[in-house]
């Protein structure tokens, strides 16, 4: 059973510009939670606050609480580095390390933890299998990760994130740079992976949210407008703005 998350009164700023306003959102364990909303609504910033990546940008600031299990990630004295080892992240554009081989990319996180050699190979194979990439790359693990196709690169990034056995998996528009076939593969993986992980996925694609997410949260102008089971959000939204968005009236 994976951990859940609990976001309380979370606000975020870039300099003086507030991009998230008092977000309250429970994230259920072993479920897929989709964050939808128009461009600039703060959905990317939101996931970046969940692994404390937001704060690496100069002038960026956060207030509020994010609980992972019992731990508030923003409590004083919490080390962001140790937090990030418990929360994996896949980015919008595939970003494998260009100077590393396929194997080294998948092993990158494990190397940080000083995993011994034999377990390293095992763990790399396991995570590449989890990311449904093993069959395609098992005979060329020494090649550069940059030589793979976009979809394969994204699955390599997924394997890299999974290799360290995180408790939460954050995905920031993981399929937006991919073709339809590669997108479907990623979506299949998301459905598969929720058995072991709690997944939060940002998407601008409502069909994708409807296909993969158990819960959906709709963001607009930095506010959480509505949150609930995907089936309800997409068929009987309670808020007028959600209805306008999902019926394509804006965004």
């Amino acid at each position: 059973m994976a951990q859940g998350m609990e976001i309380r009164n979370l606000s975020a700023w870039y300099g003086s510009q507030q991009v998230l306003k008092e977000i309250n959102l429970p994230v259920s364990p072993n479920q897929v939670t989709a964050i939808i909303g128009p461009s600039g609504c703060g959905k990317s910033t939101f996931v970046r606050t969940l692994n404390r990546l937001h704060e690496i940008i100069p002038g960026a600031r956060v207030s509020g609480q994010v609980f992972l299990g019992e731990v508030d990630l923003y409590a004083p004295g919490v080390d962001p580095v140790s937090i990030r080892r418990r929360i994996g992240m896949v980015f919008q554009k595939p970003n494998p390390f260009p100077t590393m081989s396929i194997f080294e990319n998948a092993a990158a996180g494990l190397r940080l933890n000083g995993v011994d050699k034999r377990r390293l190979a095992e763990q790399v194979e396991k995570s590449l299998k989890l990311a449904a990439l093993w069959d395609e790359v098992s005979n060329r693990l020494g090649q550069s990760g940059a030589a793979l196709s976009g979809g394969q690169q994204q699955r390599l990034c997924l394997a890299r994130a999974l290799a360290v056995s995180p408790e939460i998996l954050l995905m920031d528009e993981p399929a937006s740079a991919l073709d339809p076939a590669a997108t479907l593969k990623i979506e299949d993986l998301i459905r598969e992976l929720k058995k072991e992980y709690t997944i939060i996925v940002v998407t601008h694609n409502m069909q994708q949210a409807a296909r993969v997410a158990d819960q959906t949260a709709f963001f607009l102008n930095g506010e959480l407008v509505e949150y609930g089971p995907s089936s309800e959000i997409f068929t009987r939204p309670k808020d007028r703005r959600t209805e306008d968005y999902i019926t394509g009236r804006f965004g």
Binding site: S82, P98, G109
Partner: peptide, 19 residues
């Protein structure tokens, strides 16, 4: 994006720069 990928894996700043 490469720095972010490394930091998101739980690498420290030093590890990110060196590796």
């Amino acid at each position: 994006s490469l720095r972010e990928a490394s930091l998101a894996l739980g690498a420290t700043k030093t590890q990110t720069i060196l590796r």
